[in-house]
Amino acid sequence: MANQLMSTQFRRITKSRAHEGQAMCARMIISFLFCALISQTGCVFLPIPTQERKVLAGNPVTEDQLIFLAPNVTTKSEVMVRLGSPDVIWEEAHLFAYNWEMRQGILLWAVGAYYSGAAGMSDIPKHYMLLIQFDDQDRVQRFERAVRPPYKSYGDFLKEWIGDSYKKSSERLNQRQD
């Protein structure tokens, strides 16, 4: 009888301890999740389009400035005299690139993280390029005033442009043969 009583009490104590253990585990998990949530970060970006008036970098080249360019006629030195030194030269492709950036919008941003936060305003640039390709005699072969999309790297854009040059020249050849 005494044994039965003791065993019942022991079971109760064990059950209550089991509940305590579960509750403690739950409390620990809740505290952990709470701490983890506090440490989360968040951010807000708001782009506002603007007119392209502000020059962010480089010297813009207008269409009027390109009137002197004539394929197979204008030489490299004439280009340098009129437009100045290029920003980039791709040697293998005999390519000159003039780069400039115009502001096409403003980006308002705010970032919150942990116990701190920051906010600010940045210009959204539009990447313009004047690309001029020369032939082996240093005469203008092809030129174009282009806009590089923000998702495309500079190198990929140049390679694509040169690839496009190949296509156009082969089309011209085909037309002549026809």
Binding site: S85, D87, V88, W90, E91, E92, G155, K159
Partner: peptide, 15 residues
């Protein structure tokens, strides 16, 4: 100083 010089092989005409 001066223009940025880039070097990279030309893409093949079929690309």
């Amino acid at each position: 100083q001066g223009p940025t010089i880039l070097r990279s092989p030309l893409p093949s005409p079929t690309e």
